[in-house]
Amino acid sequence: MNGFDIPEWAIIWAAIAVSGLATYASRFLGVIFSGRVRADGKLVEWVASVTYALLAGLVARMIILPIGSLNAATDWMRLAATAAGLAAFFAFGRSVAAGVITGTLALIIMLWQ
């Protein structure tokens, strides 16, 4: 896989280190930046709004257009499982636990053949 005689385990550790550093960069810059803004200011509210939009986008993408192993479930299965989760969530008085368990079980059952 590589042109040099670097053992596989060393490359795995290098990749893990790279992943950790690339992730810590966001956290590190976040701490630096957050020290300069007011807690109740408009900037914090705007950033929170951006984060909510970004997360909703990520979550919707994961359900509608999954990349990895979730692709094994059809569009119809994922939407039906999401609907089952939402139905249980509201039926049990906005219970996140009930919704998560119902929706996940629904998907597992649909995949089980």
Binding site: A15, S19, T23, V47, A48
Partner: peptide, 23 residues
Amino acid sequence: AIAISIGMINARIFPMVVSLLPV
């Protein structure tokens, strides 16, 4: 490529930190 991709997908943590830590 791994560094850039992970840096980008985890860049979402930056606004989380910026909106949470000041509070």
